[in-house]
Structure formats: C-alpha cells, structure tokens
Computed example of a mutant assay.
Amino acid sequence: MKNLFLLLTVALTLSCCNNDDDTNTSTNPINQLPPATQTGENTFGALLDGEVFIPSGGTNPLDCVYQLVSGQYFFGLQGNKRDEDFNRITLSISTNAKELEEGQSYQLIENEIGNAYATYSFATNATTTSSNNSGTLTITKLDLDNQIISGTFSFDIIDFEGNLRQIRDGRFDMQFTQ
C-alpha cells in the first residue's frame, strides 16, 4: 500500500509539471528539416513559403549529378514531392558549364553558360531564377573521390502565376553520379 501511495504521488506530481509549448522546438519548421551534414546522407530540405519541403514519394524524389561533359562541369540537384492534390512540386539547383568549389558561394540567376540557377516547378509549369529574383548557393563540401556534395541555398522566384515564392534555409548532403 505504501508503494502504491508513493507511485500515485509521483504520477500526480509529474502530471502537474508545466509543459511550456513555446519552447517545443519540434513544431518549428526549421527543426523539421534534415540536419546539415556533410557525409553523403542523401538528404535535401528547405522551407518553401515557410512550409517544410522534403522530397518524398513518387519515382525519383531526389537526384543529384555533377558531371564533366566536353570539358565543362554541370551540376544538377532536384527534390520532388506531391501535394495533397497529387501535383508534383520540384525545387532544383543547377549550373550551366560552371565548375564548383568547396567553400564558395554562387549567385543563383539566369540559366546561361557559366551561371548557377534555381528552378521551381508546380505540376507542368516551371520558372527559374533571374537577376531580379535570385538567390545563393554555398558549397560546404565537395569530395570528388567519394562523390559527395553538400551545401546550403536560398532563393526567390516568381512562379508561373506571378506569385513570389520564397525558398529559405535550404540544405543538402548528397552522393552524386558523375
């Protein structure tokens, strides 16, 4: 009986503890993104208009290449997911004949030779960054021997309906194909 009373007292005491929901970080969208690693974990995530975007479902939800073609380097990283209406949403970062270096940042602008750029796609409609709506890509790790590329990104883009889309706190840690 004494043990039962002790157990009830402890249970009652613990149930009265204040659980301050303001300090619960699991509901913060940034904390729902994959960690910023540099070991080839094949992760990708960003905040798309403040909402968590993590590739999932469908065929090939995540893909990364960094290839030397005719003496020029081309990088392509894309993450896909489906919305509640099964529309495909894609975020991608690419370069057009541009070699990347670890520790360097690149402006995401137009899809032209020598540039880095980003694309936002919804269903079959795609738009790319421009000099007016641009962003930044930072390569935090580039290991050609182990085929690992990691980095961060953010960009603004005007979608096909004329709406500003804000992609923030993007991060990736990928094994790429050459």
Rank of each mutant, 00 (worst) to 15 (best):
N31Y: 11
Q32V: 06
Q32N: 03
L33D: 04
L33E: 01
P34N: 02
P35L: 11
A36Y: 03
A36F: 09
A36P: 02
T37Q: 06
Q38E: 11
Q38S: 10
N42F: 15
N42R: 13
T43L: 06
F44C: 03
D49M: 10
G50L: 14
E51I: 11
E51M: 12
V52R: 05
V52C: 07
I54G: 04
P55D: 04
S56N: 12
G57W: 11
G57Q: 09
G57V: 10
G58M: 14
T59R: 14
T59P: 08
N60H: 10
L62S: 00
C64A: 15
V65M: 15
Y66T: 07
Q67Y: 06
Q67C: 08
Q67N: 09
L68D: 10
V69W: 05
V69H: 05
S70G: 03
S70Y: 07
S70Q: 13
G71R: 13
Y73W: 11
Y73D: 05
Y73R: 07
F74Q: 03
F75C: 03
F75A: 02
G76W: 11
G76N: 11
Q78F: 13
G79E: 05
G79T: 07
N80H: 13
N80I: 13
K81T: 13
N87T: 09
N87H: 12
R88H: 07
T90N: 07
T90L: 10
T90C: 08
T90D: 04
L91P: 00
S92G: 09
T95G: 03
T95V: 06
N96V: 06
K98R: 13
E99Q: 15
E99A: 15
L100S: 01
L100M: 06
E101S: 12
E101C: 06
G103S: 06
G103E: 08
Q104K: 15
Q104L: 13
S105V: 08
L108T: 01
L108N: 03
I109F: 01
E110W: 06
E110D: 05
I113Y: 05
N115M: 08
N115R: 08
A116W: 04
Y117R: 00
A118I: 04
A118C: 06
T119K: 02
T119Y: 02
A123N: 15
A123H: 12
T124I: 14
T127W: 00
T127M: 08
T128C: 03
T129L: 04
S131M: 12
S131Q: 11
S131K: 10
N132S: 10
N132Q: 07
N133R: 09
S134H: 06
S134L: 11
G135R: 02
G135V: 04
L137T: 01
L137D: 01
T138H: 04
T138P: 03
T138S: 07
L142T: 00
D143G: 06
N146C: 08
